[in-house]
């Protein structure tokens, strides 16, 4: 019998600039790609991940500019396609 995975994301923007994503959303994408039956619950501050048009661009240190800032709303949207279902309906 297939096992289900429920990921609860409650700590928002945890190192997302360094990682260029949220690590649990990233893991969820990976598991989903491997065929896992997966639910994701955004709670607490992490509900903000679903807000459209977030813009984390512009980070620079000296001559080093971040070219691939996190796009968390897009990452959530991609998860929402096909197998994703909200945990609480």
């Amino acid at each position: 019998m297939a096992k289900k995975v429920s990921s609860i994301v409650a700590t928002a923007y945890r190192a997302t600039l360094e990682e260029q994503d949220d690590t649990i959303l990233w893991l969820s994408h990976t598991l989903k790609g491997a065929g896992a039956d997966l639910d994701v619950l955004l709670r607490g501050n992490a509900v903000n991940y679903a807000v459209r048009e977030q813009d984390a661009s512009g980070l620079a240190f000296g001559d080093r500019r971040q070219t691939q800032p996190p796009r968390l709303d897009e990452d959530v949207a991609k998860l929402a396609v096909s197998k994703f279902r909200p945990a609480f309906r």
Partner: peptide, 27 residues
């Protein structure tokens, strides 16, 4: 590289904090 993002190591341009520190020191 980051397969989830669909980018190779150059495209991903993954930031390492050691490089940020070095850049600030240079500035």
């Amino acid at each position: 590289p980051n397969a989830v993002h669909g980018r190779d190591v150059a495209q991903e341009a993954h930031p390492n904090p050691k490089d940020w520190v070095a850049a600030v020191m240079a500035e």
